[in-house]
Computed example of a mutant assay.
Amino acid sequence: MSKRLVKLIVISDFGCPWCFIGHRELQTAIAQCANLPVAFEIEYRPFLLHPNLPAEPVSKNEFVGKKIGRERWEACKVMATERGEAVGINFSFAGPTSMTLQAHRLVSKAYEISGHAAQSTLITLIFRAYCEDDLDINDAQVLADLAEQSGVMSKVEALNFLDSDECLEKVNNQVAEARAKGVTGVPFTIIDGKWAVSGGQSAPVFVKIFNKLAETPAVPPSQSTTPVPATAVAVA
């Protein structure tokens, strides 16, 4: 039986704990749909939640607490920790935070080199480094190590890439395009260019959508680079 191809565009940022949760939930949902007559093509695209972050690392707790308010940040940490534990993530909020642009550039290059499977592997490693291991993911050495661990490229190749401007314009354009089309928070998942799932939804939400898609004929998605979703399927 031929499988219907479902294209997923996931817009996210490494500085967002809900994006890591959403990444895990989506991967779980796809695994649970292995017997459905659908195949998935996933592309992760960048977003900058904190575009004014300095290049040099600062305290994650201090920066986010000051930006969104200490009380709101403390509540967010509690909720993220609880959701994270349910999907095997051990969040730490004690580490540094800095610009995520370099990490997004590397992820974009991974997609160009090896497609969505390699890109997803690298994304998982970067999320772990930032959210669990308290590493500075704007540090070229850290990113190069993760690129090598993912198998996308060697450490030397990654360092050479990060020292260049390759993919910089592409990433900046994709961030600007997402904002221009109304994306204000992440994660934000666009399905077949027609529907959107906003927030770090649970795996059953995605499974329900994928089951419905398996029962309906495919319709060609919009030709736009980042389609404007016609329907918000679920909002966190």
Rank of each mutant, 00 (worst) to 15 (best):
I68L: 14
I68W: 10
I68V: 14
R70E: 13
E71M: 04
E71I: 05
E71Q: 14
W73M: 10
W73P: 01
E74H: 03
A75G: 13
C76T: 09
K77P: 04
V78D: 09
V78W: 05
T81C: 07
E82A: 11
R83N: 06
G84S: 04
G84C: 01
G84P: 00
A86C: 05
I89R: 00
I89V: 15
N90G: 09
N90Q: 14
F91E: 04
F91V: 08
S92Y: 05
S92D: 10
S92H: 11
F93M: 10
A94V: 03
G95A: 11
G95I: 03
P96T: 12
P96L: 09
T97S: 11
T97A: 08
S98A: 15
S98G: 08
M99D: 12
M99K: 07
T100S: 12
L101N: 06
Q102Y: 03
H104K: 06
H104D: 08
L106E: 07
V107Q: 06
S108F: 09
S108W: 06
S108L: 06
S108V: 02
A110E: 02
G115D: 10
A117M: 07
A118F: 04
A118G: 03
A118C: 08
S120P: 03
S120I: 01
S120T: 09
T121C: 06
L122T: 00
I123A: 05
I123P: 00
T124L: 08
T124D: 11
L125N: 08
L125I: 12
L125K: 15
I126Y: 11
F127S: 01
R128H: 15
R128E: 15
A129L: 06
A129I: 02
Y130Q: 05
Y130T: 02
C131I: 04
E132M: 09
D133E: 15
D134V: 04
L135D: 03
D136Q: 10
D136T: 09
N138I: 00
D139G: 05
A140F: 11
A140W: 00
A140D: 14
A140H: 06
Q141V: 14
V142M: 07
D145M: 03
A147H: 01
S150I: 09
V152S: 09
M153Q: 07
M153T: 02
S154K: 08
S154Q: 07
V156N: 13
V156A: 14
E157L: 05
A158N: 06
A158E: 02
F161Y: 12
L162K: 05
L162W: 02
D163R: 14
D163N: 15
S164T: 09
S164Y: 11
D165H: 13
D165K: 13
C167A: 08
L168Q: 15
E169S: 07
K170E: 14
V171I: 12
V171L: 08
V171T: 15
N172E: 14
N173L: 12
N173W: 08
A176Y: 07
E177Q: 10
E177R: 02
A178M: 12
A180N: 13
K181I: 15
K181L: 14
G182A: 12
V183F: 00
T184Y: 10
T184Q: 13
G185A: 15
G185H: 12
P187C: 12
F188L: 11
F188P: 07
F188K: 06
T189M: 14
I190G: 00
D192L: 04
D192C: 09
K194V: 12
W195A: 11
A196W: 00
